[in-house]
Each structure stands twice: as C-alpha cells, then as structure tokens.
C-alpha cells in the first residue's frame, strides 16, 4: 500500500471511512419509529461497551452453535429488537454500524476467540483458504501466502489480512465488508461466490482472523 493511501487512512478527516462510522454512530443512538430500544438503550456508550469487541469476532454463537461474525451479530440483535430496521447484508446501514462498532477496537490487537468449539470451523476455514477454486484453479493461499509481496500486473499482492474491515476501497469508491472483498477475489479467479452470510464466508473470516493475530485493528481502513 502506497504512502499516500496510508496517509489517507491515518488522518480521520481524510478517511472517507469515518463518514460511514459517523453514520453508524447515528444508527447506534437511533430509536425505532414509535419509540422502542436503540442499540444504546442496552449497550450504552459504544466507546466504552464496544471497546475491543470487533477484535474478538467472529465468535461462537450459543444460539446456532456456530461461529458468527460481527455483521450477523448485529443482525441477530436487530431481529430481537422490536421495531429495529432490517439491515440486509452489505446494506449501507449494516456496513456503517459495523464500521462504528469496529472503530471502537481501532488499535486493539486482533485476538481470536479461544473457545475450543470454534476449532473445527477454523480448520474448515483454513481448508477453504487452501482449496483451489474457479476456472483459474487458484486458492487464496496461492496468491496471499505463496506470492504475497509480489505483483499482479501493477498491484501489490497483500498478505490478505482482514484487520481493517469494513473499509473504504478506492476501487469501490465506497465502503464494503470483508465478505464483499472475498467475493471480488472469487470473481477474479472465475469462481462462483457464495451468497453474503454463507457459512463458508464466516469460516474463512474465522481462519483469516487467527492468521492475522495479533495485528492491530485498523477499522475503518483505506485500501486501493
């Protein structure tokens, strides 16, 4: 990543991801029409209650006995909250709210949930990372492990760490989640990408997160 893209991320007033985080803050405090609970009604001040939370996600979800990522946790929370808005995957609202929650972990080292029940899911995520897919028959590992630091045409191949999501991508000219980025990669190798929220994605996220630890959370990051 170039010095100028890093500078854009570092200065909050230059980082367009902070516009989304600001929208997320408003959503955090917004009461549903006709009264009812906001996120803040239960969780209070996010700058205290959400500190370090995103650094631990995906986490084990007792209800589904599966890993759950931050966006699905917010969706599950909304589903229990009367009058809460429906926030589909990758909607502007969900991305903004998760950017705001993620911002509360900025600078915190990524810390994978040590719950042993996550281990088989993490192993599945690793298998997905290493499995060749698509018409180009490439795995994630073929680029992001074996060729990290090299170049694909002019673009630097990164190590594929997820510690800045949701982030502002210059290519998107907007915000997106890690799943959106994973789908881009899958399209790139001519593979069929699973739908948003698919178990494969959450397992991949789980593996990527353990692979990235203890890198500090950078949400909302800026990437080319």
């Amino acid at each position: 990543m170039s010095a100028s893209t890093q500078a854009m991320q570092r200065d909050d007033v230059q980082n367009p991801g902070m516009l989304a985080a600001g929208q997320g803050e408003a959503l955090w405090n917004a009461q549903p029409p006709g009264g009812g609970q906001s996120c803040a009604s239960c969780h209070g001040d996010a700058t205290a209650s959400m500190k370090g939370v995103a650094a631990r996600y995906p986490a084990f979800d007792e209800a589904t006995r599966r890993p759950i990522d931050l966006q699905d946790r917010i969706r599950a929370c909304n589903a229990r909250r009367p009058g809460a808005p429906d926030m589909p995957h990758e909607s502007e609202e969900l991305v903004a709210l998760s950017a705001y929650v993620g911002l509360q972990s900025r600078g915190t080292p990524t810390a994978p949930d040590p719950d042993p029940r996550l281990a088989p899911f993490r192993a599945r995520g690793q298998a997905l990372f290493e499995r060749p897919i698509g018409q180009l028959n490439l795995s994630c590992a073929a680029c992001h492990d074996a060729r990290a630091g090299g170049r694909l045409a002019g673009a630097l191949i990164p190590q594929g760490h997820p510690n800045g999501y949701p982030l502002y991508r210059l290519e998107w000219q907007g915000m997106g989640s890690l799943q959106r980025r994973l789908r881009n990669c899958m399209t790139g190798v001519r593979a069929e990408a699973p739908p948003f929220g698919a178990p494969d994605f959450v397992e991949l996220e789980l593996y990527l997160q353990s692979r990235a630890a203890p890198l500090a959370v950078e949400t909302p990051a800026v990437r080319p």
Binding site: D11, V13, Q14, N15, P16, M18, L19, Q173, G174
Partner: peptide, 9 residues
Amino acid sequence: IKTLISHVM
C-alpha cells in the same frame, strides 16, 4: 481548514 463530504460524484 480540511473538509470531507459524502457524495458519489
């Protein structure tokens, strides 16, 4: 003075 505004352009 630094300014940033959200707009698709």
